[in-house]
Simulated assay, not measured.
Amino acid sequence: MADAADDVATRRFRALDLRVETKPDLTPVSDADRMVEEILRNTLKRARPRDAVHGEEYGRTGYGPRCWVIDPIDATKNYVRGVPVWATLIALMEGDDPVVGLVSAPALNRRWWAARGGGAWTGRSLAKATRCRVSGVTDLHDASFSFSSLTGWEEQRRLEGFLDLTRSVWRTRAFGDFWSHVMVAEGVMDVSAEPEVSLWDVAALQVIVEEAGGVFTDLAGVPTADGGSVVCTNGLLHAAVLDKLGGGPVMRRV
């Protein structure tokens, strides 16, 4: 599925005839977003007809405890401007728990994936993959923090806590979207956070971060992909990060 998504999205990337519209929530959507999701849905309809599918562009179809969650192009704003930081996100959830996650970023020539209990990996193929492991940084003053933008924190009335965190860490960078979180899984960043996300933005990322040894929660400290916000860390820094952002106690997975 990721190969098919990469093929379509790459061919439409920077295309002169790329069609971009504004959705009711005022976010952009391109013809590539819709094409990728349609291809993935068609594949799943043939291969897993009993599973539900929940995608950003076409909502949820089907019923049952197993549900595929699709973000056809995460970081569409980057995609439509020609910035190569975008990816297709595919997750499989059993009930409320993501058990498989895959992030494919063909313009970066990178891919990340994980299965519950099987570790997190990065590479271009199963045969040429390296394991992802979070960092061992224990002090916020030595930590690298990646985020998406300032406006969301201001809209959520959490800007002061966000700025307090940025002043407490060693380094900040706005890599944004999926890239912030998979870099935490790889151990090259120590903290990532977004104040407002949807299920399809982070379902694939939760299992990748957790299988790499990290902690993934919402701002209330709950380990869920459906909490409307996300904080990822190497685990060692999580309580301190939530404290700075005004979040709740860390509720680790059992």
Rank of each mutant, 00 (worst) to 15 (best):
residue 203 A to R: 02
residue 107 A to D: 05
residue 111 R to F: 12
residue 196 E to Y: 05
residue 133 R to S: 14
residue 130 T to W: 12
residue 119 G to M: 07
residue 77 K to V: 13
residue 145 F to P: 03
residue 183 M to A: 05
residue 76 T to A: 10
residue 163 L to M: 09
residue 169 V to P: 02
residue 152 G to F: 12
residue 114 A to T: 00
residue 168 S to F: 00
residue 141 H to C: 10
residue 125 S to E: 14
residue 199 L to S: 09
residue 153 W to D: 01
residue 163 L to F: 04
residue 205 L to A: 01
residue 201 D to P: 04
residue 168 S to P: 00
residue 92 L to K: 06
residue 125 S to F: 05
residue 200 W to S: 05
residue 197 V to F: 03
residue 87 A to H: 07
residue 113 W to S: 00
residue 70 I to Q: 06
residue 112 W to P: 02
residue 89 L to V: 02
residue 104 S to N: 04
residue 75 A to R: 10
residue 93 M to P: 06
residue 111 R to Q: 14
residue 99 V to E: 01
residue 127 A to N: 10
residue 163 L to D: 03
residue 157 R to W: 10
residue 157 R to G: 07
residue 177 D to F: 12
residue 118 G to E: 09
residue 123 G to Y: 09
residue 101 G to C: 00
residue 113 W to L: 00
residue 193 A to M: 08
residue 85 V to H: 15
residue 143 A to V: 02
residue 160 E to W: 12
residue 69 V to D: 03
residue 165 L to N: 04
residue 211 E to I: 01
residue 86 W to F: 09
residue 132 C to T: 06
residue 161 G to H: 09
residue 124 R to L: 15
residue 153 W to E: 04
residue 88 T to M: 09
residue 177 D to K: 11
residue 114 A to Q: 03
residue 118 G to R: 12
residue 212 A to W: 00
residue 172 T to P: 03
residue 135 S to G: 06
residue 121 W to V: 03
residue 200 W to Y: 13
residue 77 K to H: 13
residue 206 Q to M: 10
residue 208 I to D: 00
residue 91 A to Q: 01
residue 89 L to Q: 00
residue 178 F to Y: 15
residue 212 A to G: 06
residue 157 R to V: 07
residue 73 I to F: 01
residue 116 R to Q: 13
residue 197 V to C: 08
residue 159 L to T: 06
residue 209 V to G: 01
residue 96 D to A: 14
residue 198 S to A: 08
residue 145 F to H: 13
residue 106 P to A: 10
residue 169 V to K: 04
residue 198 S to T: 03
residue 75 A to C: 11
residue 134 V to D: 08
residue 207 V to W: 01
residue 121 W to S: 07
residue 198 S to P: 00
residue 100 V to F: 14
residue 100 V to I: 13
residue 143 A to N: 02
residue 119 G to P: 06
residue 153 W to V: 06
residue 160 E to S: 14
residue 148 S to P: 01
residue 205 L to S: 03
residue 102 L to S: 06
